[in-house]
Design a protein around this nucleic acid. Structure first.
Lengths: 135, 135
DNA sequence: TTTTCACTTTAGAATAATTATAAACTAACT
DNA sequence: AGTTAGTTTATAATTATTCTAAAGTGAAAA
């Protein structure tokens, strides 16, 4: 993904392409494979990569803005930290609680045959499958 | 579930049946339906029910002890609080993020037809399905 | 029983993740 | 260039949870 696309992605989300947002967006989206992270890990990686430090609050703001505009998804994981995922398509996860490692599973690799209907007047938004791992 | 069973449940878990543990255990396990809660909600309910207040740290300790001995399960839910469930059998959940409501789904009500194999030397511990709800 | 002692409870301090605040800054429209 | 609304920042505040150390209490032994 090129820089020009980053700018388009930001503008299309009504996010002003500030220096910080561009730096974070380039770091997150200019890569081949999907990327899982927490705000804390992202902060450390950004410091290591560019030597400049962006305020933690800005990272929180930016990550949440990307989530709100659909460029990141939030992954629920047992524990206290919040994980994000650059893969925003419908998919599932392996989770290894020993290493806190999260691995994507393509939506096509899990087929659900039987599913209950939603309770009283509610609808199903989506279905997430977690395959918890052990050694 | 009778009081005597509560005592057995505590003793079988190598937990001394102190006044506080018995009170918490009775509140959690002397009911027909499964019960979902956070430490905070449990604390409020205990205060409302018995007018006595048990130290928060004790509630954390006790709930974690019940989890360690298999009388409670922990449910991962998007968000910052940790949910617990008195249903410790293998099962799944509906989750309504608008109301933070968690509803059990019997393991038999979801059938998975196709599942990927675990990565490199790891094994599958269990599979959890979340059906996220909307209006 | 009483004594003893390891296990518990408790209030409050400490920690960790996240959010709020308010002042300084900046993109972008005019 | 000037204005303004949106943004970043350091710091404070908040929230959930864990730690600590002193006081309390089951239950095994005397």
């Amino acid at each position: 993904m090129k820089k020009i696309d980053i700018l388009k992605k930001l503008r299309s989300s009504r996010l002003r392409p500030t220096k910080q947002r561009v730096e974070i967006a380039k770091f997150l989206f200019e890569r081949e494979k999907t990327f899982h992270f927490t705000v804390e890990s992202l902060n450390k990686l950004l410091i290591k990569k560019s030597n400049s430090k962006i305020a933690l609050a800005t990272i929180y703001n930016t990550v949440h803005a990307f989530k709100a505009s659909g460029h990141l998804s939030e992954v629920e994981v047992r524990g206290n930290k919040t994980y994000f995922d650059t893969n925003v398509s419908n998919h599932h996860h392996f989770y290894d609680s020993e290493t806190s490692e999260l691995i994507d599973i393509d939506a096509n690799d899990i087929v659900i045959q039987k599913i209950p209907k939603a309770p009283n007047g509610k609808k199903i938004k989506n279905v997430e499958v977690f395959i918890n791992l052990k050694k």
